[in-house]
Design a protein around this nucleic acid. Structure first.
Lengths: 178, 178
DNA sequence: GATATCATGTAAGGGGTTACATGATTGT
DNA sequence: ACAATCATGTAACCCCTTACATGATATC
């Protein structure tokens, strides 16, 4: 899903500024979709040019004018068509797992700490999926439940199996280079 | 983890050609790390220039010369240093979940089919994690177990909760645009 | 006094994919 | 016949992030 479609989706829940769309991506959703200002603002500009959203400028004191975007009927039609199409496969990039594959080259304490950090990160993410977020509705609820289930399983696996990976090698770095 | 480090990691298990490195990324590992020829070949060139790997050309009949790469001691040192550094957070991009967030705009049958496709994809991935792969060792085994646990939890969640998301809206598209 | 929040936007750069170029052999 | 496998490499392109530019107000 490109950033334009995502913005249309957020705007289908109600009017928002670029800044507010970005804030959505700091909640639980950031765990499976992310974007920066550098892609959000240009996307909103293009959507406006295409007549898929409308822009209302609100003058503000001592701040840039707030630009509130709302989806147009044409935008909503296009959004629904886009959502109907088969979705691309999920893409995961895990430096953590890639490092684990090569973990024979690491010291046990490094691996152990890496896993501890990862468990902490998973717990933080699970807590985020638990919180109330701006966009409610059955879709967001389902997704948060999914996140909790999957990240919970990841944490559990790490806790139950970390002993299998830590301590497989006790060589020092200079010995390993041989 | 950049592609150069990944190539060094694969080569730490044994010599390989660019083609063979790419093949590794068609097994279970592709679910958390991917790269194309367009990034692998240039990476191997740079690693060779930097003296981190060595290239042996094997002439072949009716085919481009096979170029077998092997990691040098300097390369192994650099790899171990790179692996020791704190890893970046996992990055997930799920058009599937993003679409679910906006699923109020979809017909129940579309959602239902999307979930069915996703479950099938997860089952295929789980089977891949189950197979024997070229790179064995405790790291790869741990990672495959992780994949099975996490993807299994995802499949289970979808099976147990799909009824909560399907059928929340029975409006036709023209009604929804209103 | 420093950091966070609010609020928008641009430009350079990075990391990657896709498509192209080449071409025999083997399996369906 | 057609697709897949083997085998390498380049170049254009794309999308996105990072950093920059601007600046008041509120919080710690």
């Amino acid at each position: 899903m490109d950033i334009k479609t995502f913005c249309l989706g957020i705007l289908s829940f109600g009017d928002a500024t670029g800044y507010e769309i970005k804030k959505q991506l700091e909640g639980p959703f950031r765990h499976f979709y992310d974007a920066s200002f550098g892609s959000i603002y240009p996307a909103l500009g293009k959507l406006t040019d295409a007549g898929l959203v409308e822009r209302t400028e609100l003058a503000q004191d001592k701040r840039p004018d707030k630009k509130v975007y709302s989806i147009t009927p044409a935008g909503k039609m296009l959004l629904m068509d886009a959502l109907e199409k088969p979705v691309a496969e999920d893409k995961v990039r895990s430096d953590f797992l890639a490092t684990i594959v090569f973990s024979e080259l690491l010291t046990p304490s490094t691996i152990d700490q890496m896993i501890a950090v990862r468990i902490a990160g998973l717990e933080k993410a699970i807590a985020e999926f638990d919180c109330e977020q701006d966009i409610a509705g059955p879709g967001a609820h389902f997704v948060c439940g999914f996140g909790k289930a999957v990240y919970g399983a990841a944490r559990e696996y790490l806790e139950n199996h970390r002993h299998e990976i830590v301590g497989h090698s006790l060589l020092t770095k200079s010995e390993k280079v041989q």
